[in-house]
């Protein structure tokens, strides 16, 4: 079974990207407890911002990446302030927020398509400039390794911040009960704003990762749905859960593709989602 190491690596590679995507989505969920589909747009913004800065304006790579992530974060921050805050203020149901966030996603994606055209654009300049690492009989590139590292690094940072900092405690307090948190003196609006910035920024990282590894198109539905499924399956509200969910999703998709062909990948991913929604909606790992 010579192919096993490669399949495992394929899963690991895909899992890295899904984990990053799920982490950002999970961050957005952590205070306001609703699913922000606008996340798909924030991720795209990150990728396209880097495209703009790096390839069009000519800023160097490191700075472009940083600015891209910040711009993505800003998009999430502004969306929260402009759209979601008003809805939350009048206690709109999660479904209303979901639909509004769907509007954000649709709008954001279409705006990017208008501005950047629907053409497929590649972020990386060279196609064969990758260093390859061999593991057993499998291969992984430098970029993919970088993405994986980023996923774990982000996870680590988020876990530390959420658990050990005052900010993290404020986040959890707001999640439990926003009014009570406010009476204790937590400026919930600022914290929530910061959380949206962070979550969208992580989304931006994911979007940039996809842009480098595969290419950019104004089609964010795929990465958004992967993020949602991975976050929900792994355990929504739990950072480790997002990473677990990401790798699990990659596992299911690739095994499905292996057995039945790539065309059924998506169907399998959704079947898994539905199974979890029915039998364990909170996901694998508890909050």
């Amino acid at each position: 079974m010579d192919a096993v190491p490669q399949i495992v690596l394929n899963i690991v590679i895909a899992g890295g990207i899904y984990s990053l995507a799920a982490l950002g989505f999970n961050v957005l969920y952590s205070t306001t407890r609703f699913f922000d589909l606008g996340y798909g747009a924030y991720a795209l913004v990150g990728g396209y911002a880097v495209l703009c800065l790096y390839k069009w304006v000519g800023i160097n790579l490191e700075l472009s990446l940083l600015l891209g992530v910040l711009i993505a974060g800003l998009t999430g921050f502004l969306t929260e302030k402009i759209v979601y805050r008003a809805l939350r203020a009048r206690r709109a149901s999660n479904t209303v927020l979901l639909i509004a966030s769907l509007g954000v996603f649709t709008l954001g994606q279409a705006a990017l398509a208008i501005f950047f055209s629907s053409q497929f654009q590649s972020l990386s300049r060279d196609i064969a400039s990758q260093r390859l690492f061999s593991i057993e009989s499998g291969v992984i590139t430098a970029t993919q390794l970088l993405i994986l590292t980023a996923a774990f690094a982000v996870m680590g940072i988020l876990v530390v911040v959420w658990r050990y900092t005052k900010f993290g405690r404020a986040v959890r307090a707001i999640a439990d009960d926003e009014e009570v948190a406010q009476t204790v003196g937590i400026d919930s609006e600022r914290v929530i704003g910061a959380v949206y910035f962070i979550g969208a920024a992580v989304g931006g990282i994911a979007g940039i990762a996809v842009g480098f590894d595969m290419g950019l198109q104004p089609l964010g539905m795929t990465i958004l749905l992967e993020a949602v499924i991975a976050a929900v399956v792994g355990g929504i509200g739990n950072m480790y859960g997002s990473v677990l969910g990401g790798f699990l999703l990659a596992l299911v998709e690739n095994i499905g593709a292996w057995q039945f062909g790539g065309e059924w990948k998506f169907a399998f991913a959704f079947a898994v989602l539905i199974l979890f929604l029915l039998y364990r909606p909170q996901g694998i790992l508890p909050k």
Binding site: G215, T222, A257, G262, E263
Partner: peptide, 21 residues
């Protein structure tokens, strides 16, 4: 072996691995 992907797919690794095997 036979494996299909949507036009916009960017990850063919498993399809390739399957083919290689």
């Amino acid at each position: 072996s036979e494996s299909g992907e949507p036009q916009t797919a960017t990850d063919y690794r498993t399809d390739l691995t399957k083919a290689k095997a």
